[in-house]
Design a protein around this nucleic acid. Sequence first.
RNA 1: GCCCGAGUGGCGGAAUUGGUAUACGCGUUCGACUUAAAAUCGAAUGGUGAAAACCAUAUGGGUUCAAGUCCCAUCUCGGGCACCA
Length: 759
Amino acid sequence: MERYEPLKIEQKWQQIWEKTSPFKAKEAPGTPKVMLAEMFPYPSGAGLHVGHVRNFTIVDVLARFHAQQGLNVLRPFGYDTFGLPAENYAIKTGTAPQKVTKINIDNFRKQAKRLGFAIDWSREINTSDPEYYRWTQWCFLQLYKKGLAYQKESYQWWCPVDQTVLANEQVENGKCWRCGHEVEKKKMKQWFFKITEYADELLDEIDHLEWPDKIKTMQKNWIGRSVGAEIDFAVESGAPHITVFTTRPDTIYGATFLVVAPEYGQLESLLTDDTREKVLAYKAAALKKSEIERQENKEKTGVFTGSYAINPATKAKIPIWVADYVLAGYGTGAIMAVPAMDDRDHEFAEKFDLPIVETELCDRDKFGTLKTTYRMRDWLISRQRYWGCPIPIAYDSEGNPHPIPEDQLPVLIPEVDDYQPDNTGRSALAKATDWLKVNIYNEAIGQVEEMTRETDTLDGYACSSWYLWRYASPHDNTAAWSQEAIKYWEPVDYYCGADHAVAHLLYIRFWCKFFADEGYLPFREPIKRLLYNGYINAPDGKKMSKSKGNVIDPLDVINDGYGADTLRTYEMFIGPYDQDAAWDTRSVGGVYRFLNRCWTLCFATPVSDTDHTVTTRHRTIKKVTEDIHRYNFNTAVAALMEYVNELYKVGAITEDLIVLAKLLKPFAPHLASEMLEKLSSDDEWPKWEDQYLTSDTAEIIIQVNGKLRSKITIDASNLADEEKVVAIALADDKIKKYTEPGIKKTIFVPKAKILNIVV
RNA sequence: GCCCGAGUGGCGGAAUUGGUAUACGCGUUCGACUUAAAAUCGAAUGGUGAAAACCAUAUGGGUUCAAGUCCCAUCUCGGGCACCA
């Protein structure tokens, strides 16, 4: 070979890795281990994009780095395959989602292999594989058994385009997270997971996580714990009392009216013949308002119910109003209004001419009971969709739910011809009439009964709430995860992603705590360290999108001749991993030149017979090692570039080339492997020795009044002798002219090798 | 509105504990090689200035021998939350 030909080198090593499976995790309990994973991708038809490459390469650099340091590494891979794109495609074309998914997975796998990721391919998982979702259903049943999966009729977000309900976490600014259409409220009976049961622990343990502050703050805000009190207000007419929630029970003397939400359950009991019509019209209008309207128009509206409550502190008779600035789902759906203290109540009082009185404070628990509430709601998990994990439930003739026995799992997704949901709000599963019927033992009547299956499927986030544990024993057909394997490999040491701050990352913590309580997991937090990487934008700084035509295809970059090593190294060099970055094709060329220089040094340059670079070499080892530990991948690459520039100038001995190849391997594994082969070296991560980090001479920076005036080089042995250094510095020609008026003071900092003369 | 971040050359960015501001890369300019170009190699590159020097890390103050880094105020951008009582 006469020049650097990345495509040849990469093909060669990818074939070798395919044959020898060097990234297969070892079954070696007791040895030090590292488990890493990226947030597994949804395999779209478009294949890998540059964002995947950044995400996967971060994990790959850490995986290879730890493997080279002798740790037993598990770096698995999987596919999050249930979801709307495949189903919508099926509705449009009639192609089974199973079929499309398989094609897309095959393509993703092929592309991932072309990037040289150190993946243990024997552990691939796929959430729509019956062998996988069988255990998702098992997880559901465990939650169901403990009452943490339950049905409730309530107002829910409904996307009229995707024809399904959505979790709160899937509504973004009042719009569907998938299609962007405005969501509506619809009263429906739905399945929920009781995540609120773990609200306190989910909140309190956030502070102990090695996660980015940004994510921790978002989760804290999402859970939104408020400590306050519930206070009962008697209703004058004798109607049931109204319980309000307040964080300021001490301001009760200033409460001059009550407000209940339009959806308030006991609203009817508060109405009088005079007010009924007006209030019900207001309620109907409020329910019809979309979330967007409610957010945009914050002008207070409301109507008087006709009833009065008694303020337990002042004994005053105060009016009860209904207004949509009070939310039904938070607290008790009713508040005491203290217009003198609260801006919203004040605005409402001004508008409707209600009394505003100054309040004296009292003890917080004088009139009510202390109570904590949360902003977070239970997780709505049923979806009226075909392409999801079927909920393992059937209904008897009375409509009561019964779990499908565990030995009848998986509940397979039936084949249908038409994937369109029907017009009753049920998924296409309802069209599989044979599948719908199932015989189950009904304890209530003491016999087997033909029941009707649930036609809702699980939110895709349920499938991804346990996959990290499946990686420990992906082929176990006796359990969702093996106790032994999970004990050794997990929790996950490094988890890398760029999305799902309050959805997936909260749900998986919730399941972890639940399964720890059930004795299935020996830890309560699933992820030790979270790396939240930034996006890669188009060269113009805007988001890449097909419609804008500014998408960079990573496979094009490789096939253009740059190769996977350049692509990987470029994406690590592009900037701090946690910040967004704009693609710059010319900078890709710069990284290619760097790798080309590495190749030239190793394959087309005579080896030097003098070791000029022992200090640089050890400093580079230290810098790259520490930078990877700190996730400063960009400066680690820069340090390697500096090293190569130095070797170009003064010549490299074999040791230099070996060190270079070893340090380069996490970033550019194909080229590094080729170099190590030529050099007959293993890839063991090199160690630096402190004795080589310092040289015999030291450069001293001399400042006068804080300004740089001169640099002198002295014998390093003099550094400890302050008087001597000062004397040498004062004798320096450039310094003499500043010091004529006399010296007030000198400050010498040996560690910084800096001397400041104040005159 | 509230809570976080961030602001450094022509550009992406570096400066890890308050200690040489601008590492590394891109771009640009010049040179070598070449019939020529590409590739490659070498040199220069914050601004003003002939030079000495002076001025530069969003803006204005402050602390310090010394500030991109710490403190106060202001501006701009990004993110999160947003009628959560």
